[in-house]
Design a protein around this nucleic acid. Structure first.
Lengths: 228, 228
DNA sequence: TGCAGCTATGATGTGCGCAACGATAATGAG
DNA sequence: CTCATTATCGTTGCGCACATCATAGCTGCA
């Protein structure tokens, strides 16, 4: 379903080379925690998997490092960065502000398309109940993010919104397992609220809804750290 | 003065290889408009200049492309991206918001250091009067940016603030020549105001001052487009 | 037995050569 | 003379081989 030619995040024309595909694949694996923090990735190993030389793999890894998702050290390898509590706090605080900002740059004409996407996601979420399929759940979140991201008319804000979504999702999924049912219900209500806002054409409301649910997730994580 | 080991913008440990040096050199040239938009950069040519192979140059160029400063096309070359009016508007609007946000994450303990830097910059600016030295002026702006950037306690905001500073400066310098004297005076008062704010320990004020002067510059550009 | 130093091994960093791609200019037909 | 076609050139994309670095394990000595 998620082929390569879909949505582009930035202005950069799809550098339709394979490096973007590799980059996305690795990024998703990191965000899904299939590559947990601290894991060591070998260039040769990845090159073999993607049936390419080390060169494109290295490019993808460099982009990941530039994103702050990995850290490459000479003679050692490329390892997935850990979840620094300070960075965690900063990223979430920043994301709250970004979501609040969304309404200041509304892309009104994208609302209908977003609404239809949301409705689809609602169906798919309903089909997910009781399955505890983390990957499918993440895919839903991912597509929700993309739908809301397109509601932002400001390119710079859109880029930044996307950038820190991935940073945050990686951290978030490290603690979500304990709250899977809660998060499922939370996503359901978020979808419902966003659908309502979109029907009213109120993109600012979408931003605030998103902000609130980010805060809810943040609260769950915080309470998990104190209790656990 | 600006050696390689100085301030790092992100969490990435200085990949103190040569690629970072090349990246910074090219980035500065682009922002200074020594490499004007549309200019074609050859990998081999740059490799010769920096006395390295094409490989590190390619890495630097890829980071520039990821930053949106260049665009590489197969069989053609790497060209400096043009100043899209829409992107221009978006970036400036976003920067205004970012500056307003600065005060919400103040790094109080950095204020003294920033103040001493500002005082130095004031002296250097005074020595610049009447010379029309664009490069020195840019260097001043650059160091001012760094000083204020360090006042941000939130890592994500700091990264983003830096990211779009470079994007904006590149656009800005394409029109500054017509207002050089004005900008000089404007920078003088900005430094003065920021010094006052820092003496009061009011970092939020620093953000607002910065926001206002960004808006002033924006206004100059806008009026230049209408009149010119 | 414990520790220091060395060596072997495998990782990334770098340089280089070939292939694929795009643009341009020369060329021939109409 | 104009336009379409093609050949040629230059550039980036990719793969591979070597250099450099960090680490683990072994060996020799105290």
């Amino acid at each position: 379903m998620n082929e390569s030619a879909t949505n582009e995040t930035s202005r950069t024309r799809a550098p339709r080379g394979q490096v973007t595909d590799i980059y996305r694949a690795l990024r998703d694996r990191i965000c899904l925690l299939r590559y947990p923090p601290g894991m060591l990735l070998g260039e040769h190993e990845l090159a073999e998997e993607f049936t390419v030389s080390r060169t494109p793999v290295r490019q993808a890894l460099q982009r990941l490092e530039y994103d702050g998702l990995t850290e490459t050290r000479n003679g050692v390898g490329t390892m997935v960065t850990g979840v620094d509590p300070n960075a965690f706090r900063d990223i979430y605080a920043f994301r709250l502000r970004l979501s609040e900002m969304m309404g200041e740059f509304p892309a009104e004409d994208e609302a209908p398309h977003a609404l239809s996407t949301i409705l689809l996601l609602q169906d798919r979420l309903a089909a997910l109940k009781g399955q505890r399929d983390m990957e499918a759940f993440w895919q839903l979140n991912h597509e929700l993010h993309h739908a809301t991201n397109r509601l932002i008319a400001n390119l710079a804000l859109r880029e930044t919104h996307e950038r820190y979504y991935f940073q945050a999702s990686r951290i978030w999924y490290s603690v979500i397992e304990a709250f899977f049912e809660e998060q499922l219900a939370d996503l359901a209500s978020e979808l419902s609220e966003i659908a309502g806002a979109l029907r009213a054409g109120d993109i600012r409301a979408v931003g605030y809804i998103q902000r609130n649910h980010i805060a809810f997730g943040l609260h769950r994580v915080a309470s998990a750290r104190t209790t656990g």
